[in-house]
Amino acid sequence: MKARFIKNSAMRDLRAQVAINLRRYQSGDFSELLDKANLGGMYFELNDSEADLDLLAKLEGPETNDLKEAHNAHIVYRAIKVTPYQAKDERLWVYLCHTAGLDFIRKRHPKIMSPNKDEAVKEIIQRFFIVNGHRGYERSNALARLWSYGDLASKNKGVKLDRTLEVFLYQTDVRAQIIERPSTFTNPNVFAATMRFMFAKYKSEEKRKKFFNRKEGEMPAYRRLFTRLNELGGIMLLGAIPPQDLDRLVMSAAKQVGAD
């Protein structure tokens, strides 16, 4: 089916009535509210978009220490086929979060179920709506953030998406460090070269520990590498460098900061 976008007026109403609708968020659903759409009102569809709700139903909640981030990002990115322009429309995610994503969000973000009403409302606003601009899409909204990871990982051409996501999302801080350095890592060539370097580290148990793990009182190797790449991006136009030379540059940067 085509992706649905909630209408602005309906979105404003939902946002204003989170506390009133608390029970719906915690154990009910919004079908009664959003089904009005069929009578001509609460959402619209865009022709050049697609939402595979069967695939979205495969989203998984956390298990012990595994948040299933890579699996879920893979699902959301494949299920929601929209352009980057459409993906930065709050209305898309608000509709999905209040419909197909509702069960998953309860499992993944259990603060929504908090008996403390204020805490629950705060969490719902973060996870079901877009707050704080870019951060809302990349960090907070329960589904938009997963799509954003899939979109970024898809820039690593020639490598299977799930494989890139596995390494990119292996550690929360690695992902955060990359996303928070947009001037360096938005360029697909730079991102791909960095991912190739990280794959090599990820493959070996020993190298993986050395590169990804934190030691007390020491900046992790990946952070040192990203900081160095950021510095190099301040004096070179990294995005203009061909892939093979970028691989060499990343390797050399890693050596310079002891992250090789």
């Binding site: 980057p84 930065k88 870019h134 970024l152 947009p182 938005t186 360029n187 995005g239 203009a240």
Partner: peptide, 10 residues
Amino acid sequence: NCRTTFYSRV
């Protein structure tokens, strides 16, 4: 560079 869509090209 487009920060919003994470699009960048040279």
